[in-house]
């Protein structure tokens, strides 16, 4: 019997701990496939954040570090600077990257650290039970914005790609959505590009993945995916925000 599809070698056999319909699992698979396709096995160090993906260190088949909330880009800097020949990737949620860890991500990007960051934007704090995130949409109800987020009380959502694209350090910044097969395929390409840039020594790359949290959005997996596609993309438009290769052409 011919094998036509199998789990990526860059994933372990540990079953994911994510809720049904959560796109963390898809993001993991895309990263693992990209690492495998680029032959990164045996020369990769991944960093798990604090958030629902805190257990990512169990799932990726490579050396992994679990670090403090928001500090992954700093830890990645320490690893990459002392192991410049290894592939280093960072996995962060929106609370981790765009709230408590804003200083770390901005400065890692500004320095052009030669690492690849996968940024999971699900517009909510998943792990702690659905509180407001810096990326929560205006009007979106969370456990700490029960009447819906307002500009007056909470300000506007932070657009990370747009903000980081103003810096000279990054080589590639793109926003994709894990909302449907076509967009998932685009996300895969963007992740591949991010890792390729690192392998070619081009410097910092960040791929934002608009993601679902059906559990805390209070939606079915299908409705959550639709919410990402129809509502989140209005505030967080998809596309490539920085690509030094395109600029050079």
């Amino acid at each position: 019997m011919a094998v036509v599809f199998q789990k990526s070698r860059m994933l372990t056999d540990v079953p994911f701990s994510y809720c049904p319909g959560c796109t963390h699992g898809i993001a993991h698979r895309l990263i693992a496939e990209a690492l495998e396709e680029l032959r990164c096995e045996g020369r990769t160090i991944g960093i798990a954040p604090v958030g629902c993906s805190v257990f990512a260190y169990k799932f990726f088949n490579c050396d992994m570090q679990q670090v403090a909330h928001g500090r992954a880009p700093a830890a990645a800097t320490g690893i990459k600077r002392t192991h410049p020949d290894k592939v280093v990737f960072v996995y962060q949620g929106d609370g981790d990257l765009a709230s408590i860890g804003t200083a770390e991500i901005i400065h890692a990007a500004a320095r052009g650290e030669n690492v690849t960051v996968i940024f999971i934007n699900n517009a909510i704090y998943g792990m702690t039970g659905g509180q407001m995130a810096p990326t929560t949409l205006i009007g979106q109800k969370t456990t700490t914005s029960p009447a819906g987020r307002t500009i007056a009380a909470n300000g506007n959502p932070i657009r990370v790609c747009e903000m980081l694209a103003t810096l000279d350090g990054p080589s590639y910044i793109a926003r994709c959505a894990l909302s449907d097969p076509a967009n998932v395929m685009k996300a895969k390409k963007a992740i591949l590009k991010g890792f390729r840039n690192q392998l070619e020594g081009k410097g910092f790359s960040l791929i934002e993945l608009l993601s679902t949290c059906p559990t805390n959005m209070g939606l079915t997996p299908v409705a959550a995916a639709d919410y990402v596609k129809n509502d989140m993309t209005k505030v967080f438009p998809l596309g490539v925000y920085k690509d030094i290769d395109a600029e050079q052409k």
Binding site: V67, R71, I79
Partner: peptide
């Protein structure tokens, strides 16, 4: 904050 986490990463990698 970043400095000590850079130390964490580098120390963890040996």
């Amino acid at each position: 904050v970043s400095a000590i986490n850079m130390v964490y990463g580098a120390a963890g990698s040996g």
